[in-house]
Structures are given as structure tokens and as C-alpha cells.
Computed example of a mutant assay.
Amino acid sequence: MKILQIVPSISLIYGGPSQMVMGLSAALASQGVEVTILTTDSNGDFGQAPLDVPLDKPVPQDGYQVRYFRCYPFRRYKFSLDLLRWLWAHAKDYDVAHIHALFSPVSSAAATIARQKKLPYILRPLGTLDPADLQKKRQLKQIYAALWEKPNLAGAAGIHFTSKQEAKISERFGTNPPDIVIPLGVKSLKMPPKGEARQRWGITDNQPLLLFMSRIDPKKGLDLLIPALERLLASGVNFHFVLAGTNPQDPDYENQIREEIKASPLSSCTTITGFVTGESKLALLQDADLFVLPSYYENFGIAVAEAMVAGTAVVISDQVHIWSDVKGADAGWVCSCEVEALTDALREALADVGEQERRGSNARDYALNNYSWDAIANLMIQAYREVLSKPSSVGRN
């Protein structure tokens, strides 16, 4: 089986949704699937240098290959004419295309080419069909959907949702493609010794470490978290807050959050690390007593799953769409998107170290059993085979 994974970028700077494609590709390759990722050299939207990678050449990686293409003429939108030309010429060589991201010009155009070339394709919307997300640039998205995404959805062999909740609430613009509900995967993490993050950032052992590690974006609920933490601090609750993340697409909002914390009583017990990866990321997950993500909408929450596999209990909103998994596994605390509810959940979680440890252990067990890449790859291979068994996938050019 030959599968194309098409994604606007796999740069670390764009976070989990892009990185997931590499994890999936490696897991598929380990089970004998021939996988090629088509992507661009985009490495940020505000003047950052592009990725230093070979262009339009197969780059071997973890059993699969990546083909990078130069972003042009619209670098800001991760668009590549060369990628689309390559797809037009080589679509016939593949069995299925798995296209990641809607409302992204290169993904939208790729789906159109796949349809014209009769290459069956699956779309993964990355939360862009969530009604809350569709409110952003609403009029522009309505036009874009009418011209591009509605016919792309109508012609898809399936939509890859990462949770039942995402599938339940997502807009389909009057189309009816099959739902394919398969979660994202996480790999078992080799954690560093405890204490490395505390030592690096000067956080004392007598302060519970509360970690937010995600893209700094309005949808992540920082406007709930900051006042909730201020309330806890004012009532005498002891903690140290670590804000780890950045926003390559909206640095103004990131700066706004930084200035808000700087002017807040939280400044005395907050560390802002910026973007972290590798050993620094693992060290923070290892030392965190709680992981918090009170998002207004989150189609899966890969950062939450990573915290769980690290054995860290989580405090999340009920709009992070794996909340039912967390609640069912007793792997953390779930609350509504309200300051008072988040304050109460954090207060309860911070008050009991033993409960943090118990729920963290539950979180690790659940994540390893249900979000392992081997299990996800098996489900995805089955989905690809079902796509190929349908009459619509027969008689291609």
C-alpha cells in the first residue's frame, strides 16, 4: 500500500498537529506501508528563515520519506506551486492521499487535484470545522468553503476526526462524507531524572509546578487561566506556574499575554520559557505536578496526551475533546470554560499530592494503552483498506 501524507508544514514551530504526521508515518512504515510526506519548507509566518532541507528530493526518515517544496508565491499561507505540480504528475502512483488541514490553500488545492486524478483522499480538518473556529474570519471562510472545501468534503473518501466529540460538532457544509474517528498517537517517553527543569529555571522543590505547554493562542483559554491563578494566589495557595509555548502566527497576542503576566501578582511565581522541545520539554513534563489546558475548543489535545503519557495528571476544560477519556480513566480534573470552575478544579487538584500521583499514574496507563502509535497505525491501515474497497476508488486514471 502506497500512501501520501500531505500537510502544509512539519516544522516544530507549528506544534503538535503537524508533528503528528511524522509519528503516524513512522508507525505506518513499521507495519509495511510505503509512506511519502509532501510538505513545504515553511518554518514560521513572520520572516523566519525556511527550513534548511533538500527540495523536491526524497529525504529518508524513520522508514518513510519526506519531499519538501519551496513555499511560493504565498509563503505566508504555506503555499507551493511545485508541490501541486508534483502531485499532479505523480498522483497515479499512490493508493490513498491523507490530507491534513482544511482552509489551507495547499491542502485545498491538493484535494482538488486528487479528485481530478481519481486518487481517493481522506481529510483531517485539525479542528477547523469546529463551529467556534469557523467564527474566526467568518465571511472569508464562508466564501472559501463554498469555492473549495464544500466540493473537497463532498468528494472525500472520509473525514479523519480525532475524537467522537469533534465528529459530533463539526460542520460539513451540507455534504455527507463518512466519518473516520481515530485518535492521535503518542510514543512512550524516555524521561530525564526528576529535578532538571526545576534546577534549570530556579523553581524550588516546595512549590507545586503547574505547567501550561501549548501554542499561545486565544482559543487555549489563557484568559480563564490567568485570573484563576490570580485568585488562587490571593487566597494563599502555593504554586509555581510555567508558561511554555509561543505563537508563530500571532506574536502580538503572545506579547499581550507576557505583558499581562508581568503586570500581575503572578509575575513573582511564573516562569515564561518560550518554545521548548527535546530534553527541555521532557524535563518540564517530568517535573510538573499538574498540566493545565482550559481550551475553548480542541479537536484532540495532543499536548494533553503527551502529559498523560509522561504520568502527569491534567486539568482541562470540557471543550478539549478527549475530556471524556480523561474523566473515564480518572486521569485528571475536568471543568467548564469558566474562571470560577477552573479555579475550583485547580484548588482541588493542588490540595492533594497523593491524588495528583494516583491520577497521573492512571493517565500514563490510559495513554499507553489507547494512544500508542502501533494501535493508531492498525486502525489507520484498516481505514485505508476500507477506502480502497469502495467502488469509487476503482477505475482511476
Rank of each mutant, 00 (worst) to 15 (best):
P294K: 07
F239D: 13
A303W: 00
A146R: 15
N176S: 14
R364I: 06
A111M: 15
D217I: 01
Y253W: 02
K137D: 12
F69K: 05
T277K: 14
L12I: 10
V181W: 01
Q286P: 02
E279G: 08
F275E: 12
H321Q: 14
T312G: 02
A383F: 09
P151L: 03
F46N: 15
D93K: 01
V237E: 10
N370D: 09
I203L: 05
L285A: 05
S80Y: 04
T343I: 00
G195N: 08
D252M: 11
S235P: 00
D52H: 06
V35M: 09
P265M: 01
E338F: 04
D41F: 05
V304M: 08
V237L: 07
K281F: 06
P151C: 09
N299Y: 07
D374H: 07
I6V: 11
A288E: 05
P8I: 02
Q135E: 15
S392K: 11
Q207F: 12
N397E: 13
N206A: 11
G311I: 03
W333V: 03
F241A: 11
G245S: 00
R172H: 11
A145I: 06
V326H: 06
S235D: 15
A341L: 04
Q249P: 03
D93N: 12
D82I: 00
T343W: 03
V292P: 08
Y253Q: 03
P192W: 05
L184I: 10
K136V: 15
L293H: 04
N362R: 12
D344P: 01
L184R: 02
D287W: 05
G158N: 10
E196R: 14
A283C: 08
Q116H: 14
G32D: 03
A351D: 11
A101P: 03
Q5E: 11
G301P: 08
P218S: 06
G245H: 04
A244P: 01
R75A: 14
I169D: 04
L222T: 01
E166N: 10
I3C: 11
S295C: 06
T128N: 13
D133W: 14
G15L: 01
S393A: 15
T246K: 09
D289T: 04
G274V: 03
D217K: 02
G236E: 03
T246M: 09
I13N: 06
L350Y: 02
